[in-house]
């Protein structure tokens, strides 16, 4: 029982203090830019910053209540946003769409 409790605390702390920052660190630095030491430092630092700021802002604007569901959702969304951005950055569809849009804009600019 105690082992289960410790595991819950450990995984919970990891989820709040590491996961969102780790995802966001890839927004600021690509895989080749920094090694895992710097990424670890950034991940923890970013998580400690982003989680309370997001929760506080949501509570301030939407009066969001701090519950297990709301905090888990916030941390998950905080993780998903950068992951989605990274996938979008890499996706060929987005690349094509962006380059297409750029060429249309540059053509209109020339006209």
């Amino acid at each position: 029982m105690i082992v289960l409790e410790i595991m819950t605390i450990f995984l919970g702390v990891l989820f709040v203090l590491l996961v969102p920052g780790l995802a966001w660190s890839y927004i600021f630095f690509t895989r080749k830019d920094i090694d895992w030491i710097e990424r670890f430092a950034l991940s923890l630092g970013l998580s400690i910053v982003l989680v309370p700021i997001s929760v506080f802002w949501l509570n301030w604007i939407f009066d969001m209540k701090i519950t297990l569901l709301s905090t888990t959702t916030v941390v998950s969304v905080l993780t998903i946003i950068p992951v989605a951005c990274i996938f979008a950055r890499k996706s060929t569809w987005v690349k094509n769409a962006t380059s297409g849009l750029k060429s249309i804009l540059s053509r209109q600019h020339r006209k």
Binding site: E5, T8, I9, F10, L11, G12, V13, F15, V16, L17, I48, V51, P52, V55, F56, I66, T67, L68, T71, T72, V75
Partner: peptide
């Protein structure tokens, strides 16, 4: 300042610390 205590709130409800 609120930062540490909002963080401890989140850890309390999520991880039970």
């Amino acid at each position: 300042p609120q930062g540490l205590f909002v963080l401890s709130d989140v850890m309390y409800v999520t991880a039970g610390t």
